[in-house]
Design a protein around this nucleic acid. Structure first.
Lengths: 152, 152
DNA sequence: ATAAATAAAGATAAATTTGTCTTTAATTTA
DNA sequence: TAAATTAAAGACAAATTTATCTTTATTTAT
């Protein structure tokens, strides 16, 4: 569905939303381990998300790291796709036709459009915070090994 | 959603299903033009679909080309994904987690699973033939420029 | 048989994505 | 001010995907 970059971006952002605040920043290492993502690559991706402080914020230096503002946490999940330049994935024709539309539909268009609609609705109505809160609530995981962040 | 290879495979197969029969075979050039796909690459992809005559059949030599049997036309669209080795796309976790499941769900799992279910249902119940027949029926297209195959 | 037409197979190349590493800049603390 | 810590930026490398081209095999028609 999404590129690896975007998958990492989604996981990292949800994790940061759950664990961070302006007072509690998270380093690359912690984030990449908690989300089963390669550290250097995650750093690259966070740069994109941090651009203009749109999704994620960061500060350098000791006690620095990444965090999200309460405002940013309320953004729809779709804004992560936008920041990664992969928002058109949701809108694309499932057969890859550029001109596919209601007036020039592909053979799957009429069947797929309802599914597409739900996908878009999901990404536009769910906030990052809502997803993050599920991790706190119950048995929901953002990596492959059921580990959570050890805060000491 | 899918790789370009799979998009080309879907378009080519639907087109072949619509236009061909054992008596009326189609050459690479015709297929690639009708589906807005690069000819050499389309040839490569058709090799995969032709393997074991699973989806598409072919014969070499003059008056040769690609075609589908009536039996093959009745296969579910999903079988094209299978042949392309991309069937797991439908099942994958939307956040890219290998271990995501009902017992170890990711934060989007509960929301996405209904959409995923519909996607799988679509690809498993729709036959190649059903999609192909839509092109005949009405204003449905398999390329970007509303052109259809000129038979002479 | 020979020639022509066609797909199959395989080598190669280009482009993109994924990933790492090194250097630089910013911030904090001592 | 100096040292330590952290992200930012950018160069580079590896892997994968996309695409092309050439040669080979098969089939048909002459």
């Amino acid at each position: 569905m999404f590129s690896k970059s975007t998958e990492y971006a989604l996981r990292a952002t949800i994790f940061i939303a759950q664990k961070s605040s302006a007072e509690m920043k998270l380093g690359i290492k912690v984030i990449s381990e908690a989300t089963d993502s390669p550290p250097s690559f995650t750093a690259k991706i966070l740069q994109a998300l941090t651009r203009d402080n749109k999704i994620v914020s960061s500060v350098r230096g000791p006690n620095g790291g990444f965090y999200m503002t309460e405002k940013a946490k309320k953004l729809p999940v779709r804004s992560i796709l936008d920041a990664m330049g992969e928002d058109e994935v949701l809108e694309r024709c499932i057969l890859g036709l550029n001109q596919c539309s209601e007036i020039q539909p592909c053979p799957m268009h009429s069947q797929y459009k309802l599914i597409k609609k739900q996908l878009i609705l999901l990404f536009e109505t769910k906030t990052i915070q809502q997803l993050a809160s599920e991790i706190k609530d119950g048995e929901v995981f953002i990596n492959n090994n059921k580990t959570s962040l050890k805060l000491d």
